[in-house]
């Protein structure tokens, strides 16, 4: 499996001199999902935005399939990368169907081709195109909006999908449904995904590898199965913080999945 995205000593400092990314280096293999965990302000979103040049690093390189993104036309680059954010950013004056078809529209697809693709993706994202296609975003629930946002990101069949806390604003049940839907979708569509999240369970459920950032540095880059077993203090601190309310360690999905690992870790 070849490398899809590579960060080489990526630095980013604000004009005021605040360092947000401090020498990030890691590679993401194609058709895998990498979750980026870390506390607020650790640089997760900035790192994600370096991939589609929404942010230009002040040092180092970001490569996609071996090509430096700094040398690519940002418009072409962005149209080839799916982007999903927590607030969805759906265009309020477009119907659901047109929202999904935005990138195909920019790429000059015909109207029928766009409509066909929109319907296909709405269906894949779990929304009935006949019922929802003609609605406006303000006529949808939070979960439905997020499904449309995901369908839109996938519309032009990008190889890479960037997701910035996509389900962060949803209630736990809707979030779990969305995670199931996304896992199913990614299983079928084979995308390279960078997923920024605060949610350890989400990272364990969806990702193949997990990167933990702290103050703009990579403190851990582990396979999903190794994360809960890691003895690194930063990783353990994150796990402890995440599971504070879960005294029995076993009610949630991450623990169900990794119960073996958890048992081995207990003294």
């Amino acid at each position: 499996m070849s490398v899809a995205i590579e960060f080489r000593n990526v630095l980013f400092a604000t004009p005021q001199g605040r360092v947000l990314l401090d020498g990030i280096s890691f590679a993401v293999k194609e058709e895998t999902t990498t979750a980026i965990l870390g506390r607020s302000g650790s640089g997760k979103t900035t790192l994600l935005r370096c991939v589609n040049r929404m942010v230009s690093p002040t040092g180092g390189d970001v490569l996609i399939e071996g090509r430096n993104v700094a040398a690519l036309d940002p418009i072409v680059l962005r149209r080839g990368i799916g982007y999903v954010i927590q607030e969805t950013g759906l265009f309020p004056h477009f119907t659901v169907e047109r929202n999904v078809g935005v990138v195909p529209e920019l790429l000059g697809w015909s109207r029928t081709e766009r409509a066909r693709r929109s319907r296909e993706l709405l269906q894949a994202a779990g929304l009935d195109p006949d019922e929802f296609g003609g609605r406006y975003p303000n006529q949808l629930s939070g979960g439905q909006r997020q499904r449309v946002g995901l369908a839109r990101a996938l519309a032009a069949d990008p190889k890479i999908l960037l997701m910035d806390e996509p389900f962060g604003a949803l209630d736990p049940l809707t979030r779990a449904e969305m995670q199931d839907m996304l896992r199913d979708l990614l299983g079928r569509m084979k995308k390279t995904v960078l997923l920024v999240t605060h949610d350890l369970d989400e990272a364990l459920y969806l990702a193949d590898r997990i990167v933990l950032l702290n103050e703009g540095r990579v403190v851990a880059h582990l396979a999903q199965a190794e994360f809960l077993q890691s003895q690194q203090p930063e990783v353990q601190a994150y796990i402890r913080a995440f599971h504070r309310g879960d005294r029995n360690h076993g009610r949630n999905r991450a623990d169900r999945q990794n119960r073996g690992a958890e048992e081995a870790r207990k003294p």
Binding site: N52, M54, P74, I75, V76, L77, R78, R79, G80, I81, Y83, I85, E87, T88, G89, L90, F91, P92, V102, V103, L106, R152, L162
Partner: peptide
Amino acid sequence: IDRAVIEVALALGLT
């Protein structure tokens, strides 16, 4: 205009 809408417009590759 909602910043998220502008952000996404940029990220989707609108000129």
